[in-house]
């Protein structure tokens, strides 16, 4: 009785969101977005290197 009074109320977390499993879909989407941006950086890097060799 006394102990439960001292305890803070449990914080709400996205437990259900995770339990349903589909969070992996979101993680995969974010991963693809980031991979695409890095691929673009690599492409730009190559293009600039080509131009530098020409100059």
């Amino acid at each position: 009785m006394l102990l439960s009074f001292l305890q803070a109320p449990p914080a709400e977390m996205a437990d259900l969101f995770r339990a349903e499993g589909k969070i992996y879909v979101v993680v995969a989407v974010i991963g693809i977005v980031f991979a695409g941006l890095v691929a673009y950086l690599v492409w730009m890097e190559r293009r600039i290197t080509q131009l530098e060799k020409k100059a």
Partner: peptide, 13 residues
């Protein structure tokens, strides 16, 4: 990006 969404974090109000 992956671990930041999936790993456990402290539960704080």
């Amino acid at each position: 990006l992956i671990a930041g969404l999936l790993f456990d974090v402290p539960r704080l109000v």
